[in-house]
């Protein structure tokens, strides 16, 4: 979990992601941030995220991001 928050903090340092219940709804992540996040996750966890999985609901919380990494074959 900490690893994900670190990535998010690096992406958008102006926000405290631990305070948000929905990163997308709260405006912490826009569609371009999600694309940047996909790229970072793929590099860091050596996974390929399916294009169909690049949807807001998979990036709305740290738990959702972890579930996506696992679904994509990554270990976290």
């Amino acid at each position: 979990m900490e690893e994900i928050y670190k990535i998010l903090k690096d992406l958008r340092p102006e926000f405290d992601f631990t305070e948000s219940e929905d990163f997308v709804e709260d405006g912490f992540l826009d569609s371009f941030d999600i694309i940047s996040l996909v790229s970072t996750i793929e590099e860091k966890f050596n996974v390929k995220i399916d294009g169909l999985d690049v949807v807001p609901e998979n990036f709305c919380s740290a738990e959702a991001i972890i579930a996506l990494i696992r679904k994509s074959g990554g270990t976290i």
Binding site: L11, I35, S36, S39
Partner: peptide, 13 residues
Amino acid sequence: FPEKQTKRLKKVM
């Protein structure tokens, strides 16, 4: 937008 955030898109997009 913050410069760092925008610059990330250069490589990805």
